[in-house]
């Protein structure tokens, strides 16, 4: 029996489910599962029972909440696909609409972060799911995949005075005074942006559950020059640090 798979999309750019189609293993993947719902292939009005549900995007409407709750009832495993589904993603930067990650509404069985999810990581995660295994998330930060390591030896304090690099870096962006969120971002994307000389913006999301403290620790351990305004758009473009203080 092939596993029954449901893939659905909430408020999102459809980038993550498009990545599934782009996968090299997509033909094999298509062969080895029965789609009961896949917006780009298979469409239906009601949700049937399924083995695995992949949900892309975040919740911005009331009916999406109901949809997610319904999926939870029908699916054996629910997986958040992409950074929007698990951390709110770029939609959470909006002042007008509230974006709710699905794990605030339902319990999930795993997540595949990324904006969009990096193909190689997505492929291996899907294969793991089909084999009944857990998705392997790296416990390390992005720096572990980056070629721009800090030079060896004892290091001095990091001082940031640029957001955009002016030249091709020789060593770690941070030591060339350019802000890079690599240290507080989970590995898994193979540092694609950094290999193209673009500092990390954090689309893979945080490594530890408490992103807020991770971020505070990071930004307080580096010196940022006063003419750069470090705003929310920079430090939490993809992950909105939730407020943890109980309401009084």
């Amino acid at each position: 029996m092939k596993p029954k798979l449901l893939i659905t999309s909430l408020t999102s750019c459809n980038g993550c489910i498009t990545s599934i189609i782009e996968l090299e293993i997509f033909p094999e993947f298509l062969e080895s599962v029965d789609f009961i719902f896949f917006p780009l292939i298979e469409d239906k009005d009601n949700i049937d029972n399924c083995d695995i549900a992949l949900i892309e995007g975040c919740i911005t409407k009331e009916e999406q909440k109901e949809e997610v709750l319904e999926i939870r009832k029908k699916a054996k495993k629910v997986i958040a696909l992409g950074t929007c589904a698990i951390f709110g993603g770029i939609t959470s930067l909006s002042d007008e609409i509230e974006s709710i990650p699905i794990n605030e509404i339902i319990e999930i069985d795993g997540f595949i972060p990324g904006c969009p999810t990096p193909t190689e990581f997505l492929g291996s995660s899907l294969m793991a799911l089909l084999n009944g295994e857990k998705i392997k998330l790296s416990p390390k930060n992005l720096c572990s995949e980056c070629d721009l390591r800090p030079d060896s030896g004892v290091k001095s304090k990091i001082k940031i005075d640029k957001l955009i690099p002016e030249k091709i870096p020789f060593e770690c962006f941070l030591h060339e005074n350019v802000l890079c969120l690599g240290p507080i971002t989970r590995a898994g994307c193979k540092a694609k942006c950094l290999k193209a000389n673009i500092p990390c913006e954090g689309c893979m999301g945080p490594i530890l559950a408490d992103f807020m403290s991770n971020m505070v620790n990071f930004f307080s351990s580096i010196e940022v020059s006063e003419d750069i305004k470090i705003s929310e758009e920079i430090y939490s473009k993809f992950t909105h640090p939730k407020s943890f203080v109980k309401t009084v």
Partner: peptide
């Protein structure tokens, strides 16, 4: 667990 970001060193 170490990713070699070097924050500890600096």
């Amino acid at each position: 667990k170490c990713g070699f970001c070097g924050l500890c060193a600096s």
